[in-house]
């Protein structure tokens, strides 16, 4: 039974929250190959204990009536998430759409490494590389779509 809206009021995010949010989001879109390669440059994936998952479940995606109105439930998507702890105590979270458990766990490991001073810089660099790839993909899609824009021109009207 649902009783009250669960959308919590947005609390102001600290700078470190914002950094972590972006990190988790970029890691969530990195491929296993990209993450494995990045971890190789950081001396390999460290040992990590699973605190939760990796596990696949469902998130119910919500929409709004008319795009802007009241909420409704559109349908579910598969989501895979993992929470791990490194030997140094750092905890990392990974989550992404789809069913790739290996990817979610690697993302959690990289998130935890991003919490440590030794690897923060390297993880940030990696995330910015992922961001660059994503931006390039979006730009290509936008450019392809733009090429299908209709350029209307009005025929000259015959005036007497």
């Amino acid at each position: 039974m649902q009783t009250a809206a669960k959308t919590e009021p947005a609390r102001p995010l600290s700078a470190s929250d914002v950094a972590r949010k972006h990190r988790i989001e970029h890691l969530g879109r990195a491929t296993v190959e990209e993450m494995s390669r990045a971890l190789d440059t950081m001396g390999g994936a460290p040992e990590a204990v699973n605190l939760r998952g990796p596990e696949t479940g469902l998130v119910m995606i919500r929409g709004r009536m008319g795009g802007t109105g009241s909420l409704f439930n559109l349908g579910e998507a598969t989501v895979t998430r993992a929470t791990i702890r490194l030997a140094n105590g750092a905890v990392g979270h990974g989550q992404r759409l789809g069913g790739d458990k290996a990817a979610a766990r690697l993302a959690a490991i990289l998130d935890a490494m991003g919490e440590t001073s030794a690897h923060r810089k390297a993880v940030e660099t990696f995330c910015s590389e992922v961001a660059t790839r994503l931006e390039a993909e979006d730009a290509k899609l936008a450019a392809e779509t733009a090429a299908t824009r209709v350029d209307f021109f009005t025929m000259v009207r015959g005036d007497d």
């Binding site: 605190l51 939760r52 596990e55 929470t83 702890r85």
Partner: peptide
Amino acid sequence: HTEALEGGFASPV
């Protein structure tokens, strides 16, 4: 905090 994240079933199933 980590205390809240630890202590689930090692094998959930």
